[in-house]
Design a protein around this nucleic acid. Structure first.
Lengths: 264, 264
DNA sequence: GACCCCCATTAACCTATGTTATAGATGGTT
DNA sequence: AACCATCTATAACATAGGTTAATGGGGGTC
């Protein structure tokens, strides 16, 4: 348990949590240990199939994936994009079977661990438990925002919104350079994420290019004016806050509850 | 701390958790104590406004509410229905401001407690923490399923699906009698939940009535043949499982992690 | 009992988006 | 270099669902 090593969490998960809450060496070691078992997967491979029994909890270390649900007749909805540092099936392991599938979009590096370790974590490291809970709440907020998109935004607004969302999420993990990032996604997947047809997503992207808001070159997308794109997408600042860090989380964990506990 | 009292949790939350996991007296007492501070609200009153700072965590004891998000120009999406026993803003309290509003649809009875008590709960009762985490995951699953509805199901399918969902969720709390329950909801709210216009929801409900799948009399809705309605809505059995109890949760908490812990 | 407001209902018309079809890129494989 | 599978791109056409507008019912309230 070297101090120097422990202070630089090698796990993307640890790095993500560290960005909004400082961790003790013990906590960092636990996280690093969690992610010890890393597997590699090709592009377009299923990490989890809808209807399958949940196996282990996974953390995306490198690459992209999608969470998706399908109807019996094949219609499909992409629920969310899984980006580096994201957790897959954290709580869901408590369910009997998966109600959604997870499929990689690129070659991916994934850390795997047994769900029991989550329970262990809940018992031994309440601060980590709360941090992960927060992370789960964030995921829910993202899905709810997408529901608003699909339910109430026009195709143009939806598409603009998604691009801004991905830009924001990727910048946190350091994957955006001067408004440019890799979008390893076919138009079919975009369509399934936005509840549109593949033809209409094509039309919509064309419009965004014609307006001059984005540039597309293969899988490279460049956003020229984030503010303008955000305004087209009616991107909500509140929702933005959610993607950022909760300042009070650490404070709450360190101060308030210790006080309470002492009083018990 | 009377044993007899503790065994019958008076809190709907406690009752809900008890339905899938047995609780110790200490845990029950903690939950009962959480819900000590009950407030009453009229119909159509805001329990939380979008953009507002989160105040306290709430548990719906009686009545219905909706979680909703709005766009600047007034378009609105109902994210979920809050039914008796549901928690409002559990994890979200870790956020700076609410990204959604919560409004009652009926007179309501709500229990309130400070977010610090959640942290307390995480530190003192890991089993409860896991149970609540599971509850949060269930909520996410419901929202994801609605996303699938709005993104990929037709108006008729969506509407049928929602009715079956509400029927299922309400039966768990004992609010359905012979396929009949109260739907304290205007067509405008249904429209906002399903991403449809108010006119089209009307058309769709008429179709469901004409087919003979449902009966509407004021706020009383009767489902004649759940199976058929579920099949119209492409209601997924997997998703159904999620609404039921997780058999393994208690087991996992009692067995596996204690073993681990002992080994430490 | 007259007035209102909110809500459900329907009809007529309109449009954003879906569907079908075709052609051209792109990139990997033999 | 020819082949194949995917993917993008457009055009032409179809439709599910949106919009506008008008009507009527039910339940408060003065």
């Amino acid at each position: 348990m070297t101090r120097a090593q422990a202070n630089i969490p090698s796990s993307p998960l640890g790095r993500k949590i560290t960005s909004y809450m400082s961790l003790t060496d013990e906590e960092k070691n636990f996280l690093n240990d969690l992610e010890r078992n890393v597997t590699r997967h090709g592009s377009r491979s299923d990490l989890l199939q809808q209807g399958e029994r949940y196996g282990c909890v996974r953390v995306m270390r490198k690459g992209w994936a999608i969470r998706h649900k399908a109807l019996p007749d094949g219609r499909r909805q992409v629920v969310n994009f899984v980006l580096p540092g994201d957790i897959i099936g954290f709580y869901c392991n408590l369910f009997e079977t998966a109600d959604h599938g997870v499929t990689t979009l690129t070659p991916a590096e994934v850390a795997n661990f047994q769900p029991e370790r989550i329970i262990e974590l809940f018992k031994l490291f309440p601060r980590l438990a709360a941090a992960l809970a927060w992370s789960g709440a964030k995921e829910e907020a993202i899905i709810a925002e997408r529901l608003l998109s699909v339910g109430r935004r026009t195709a143009l607004e939806r598409t603009a919104h998604l691009i801004v969302e991905l830009l924001r999420r990727l910048s946190i993990v350091g994957l955006v350079e001067e408004g440019r990032f890799t979008l390893p996604v076919t138009q079919e997947i975009l369509a399934d994420a936005l509840g549109l047809s593949i033809v209409h997503i094509n039309r919509t992207l064309r419009r965004l290019r014609d307006i001059g808001l984005i540039d597309l070159a293969g899988q490279q997308i460049t956003v020229h004016d984030v503010k303008q794109l955000a305004s087209v997408g009616q991107f909500d600042e509140l929702y933005l806050h959610l993607i950022q860090a909760p300042k009070q989380l650490e404070h709450a964990l360190d101060t308030k509850s210790d006080r309470k506990r002492a009083g018990d």
